[in-house]
């Protein structure tokens, strides 16, 4: 019998799509049961979404006012208390999961496997290192609990089930610290498709030159119903907010179509798009490294190419 517990990610009212990806990773582990823990101030809507995913055995709901904000110091001790009877504890490799899970693993006294990209066998996993320039297979000896984060760009999302799993209120006896307090969240992205789940992504780099010029990228993205990404250079220069950064230290994404305009293709950026279906690169430098990974490359000035694409797409 192997039992998996997944820490749900949510924004206080809706389940994040990364949770469904953890469920499919758990299914790959050949586990006997997959439970999802929802820790929130109000769990009902989130727990119902989690219960509706194929493969889920049970949803554990922990409703406490302290869980209103995703503070690792508050969530980790509760997760560890819940994890007592489980063999695997999973969280998505998003900033939320990366923040909470190592804290929980250390409280439980076990190491963590970060960024599982493939389940290679029972207790064997593949994960990227060196910005994805090498892949290692790690194994965890029998007898120890496994804490792991799941690289969401590598997993498919578990679909909706015909029948919902039961939701159980879990009572946990964990004392929660008051030394960490949530102040606020300044959300970056508007109402464009979420970068991490969008089927198409249009991305801009340093070459855009200003935040006004980035309107070109937004305009094309809207035409294609695409999410918007950026290189670190574009974020550092203040053209766009940080949550748009794609790459080793930004978001790892796997859209069907990725269009990169004025991005040179540094390895740290490429790490973020290796799983994209088709990569299109437009760059005025024919020797730009991005052309080595692009499926379709076009040498040209983005300030001419983008308006031309828009005209050709019409409407």
């Amino acid at each position: 019998m192997s039992k998996v517990l997944i820490l749900a990610e949510h924004d206080g009212s809706a389940l994040n799509a990364s949770t469904a990806k953890c469920v499919s990773c758990a299914a790959d582990m050949g586990s006997d049961s997959i439970d999802i823990a929802v820790l929130a101030a109000q769990t009902d809507g989130i727990a119902a979404e989690a219960a509706a995913l194929t493969g889920v055995t049970q949803v554990l709901s922990v409703e406490r006012p302290e869980n209103a904000a995703p503070l690792a110091a508050v969530i980790a001790p509760q997760l560890v208390a819940l994890a007592a009877d489980y063999d695997y504890v999973l969280a998505p490799s998003t900033t939320f999961g990366k923040d909470v899970l190592p804290r929980a693993a250390a409280l439980a006294g076990v190491p963590q496997v970060s960024d599982i990209m493939e389940v290679a066998g029972p207790r064997r996993f593949k994960r990227p290192i060196y910005a994805g320039n090498a892949i290692i297979t790690v194994s965890v000896p029998e007898g120890s609990k496994i804490f792991a984060t799941v690289r969401i760009a590598s997993s498919r999302a578990a679909p909706a089930a015909n029948e919902a799993a039961p939701i159980t209120a879990a009572d946990i006896n964990a004392s929660l610290p008051a030394h960490t307090r949530f102040v606020g969240l300044q959300a970056g992205g508007g109402d464009r498709p979420d970068l991490q789940t969008a089927r198409r992504v249009v991305s801009g780099g340093r070459a855009l030159g200003s935040s006004d010029n980035f309107d070109l990228i937004y305009g094309l993205a809207d035409k294609l119903a695409a999410g918007v990404g950026a290189s670190r250079a574009a974020v550092d220069a203040g053209y766009v907010p940080n949550d748009m950064q794609v790459g080793q230290t930004g978001k790892i994404i796997a859209p069907d179509l990725y269009l990169a305009f004025g991005i040179s293709g540094a390895i740290q950026h490429l790490t973020g798009i290796k799983d994209a279906g088709t990569i299109v690169a437009v760059n005025k430098d024919p020797d730009a490294p991005i052309f080595e990974v692009a499926d379709i490359g076009l040498v040209g000035d983005l300030f001419e190419v983008i308006p031309e694409i828009e005209r050709a797409l019409g409407g």
Partner: peptide
């Protein structure tokens, strides 16, 4: 706590077109 069994190069993407 974890054993690294082996290191591999990442799969190469198929050569693209211009």
């Amino acid at each position: 706590g974890l054993q690294i069994e082996d290191y591999a190069s990442p799969p190469e993407r198929a050569k693209g077109i211009m």
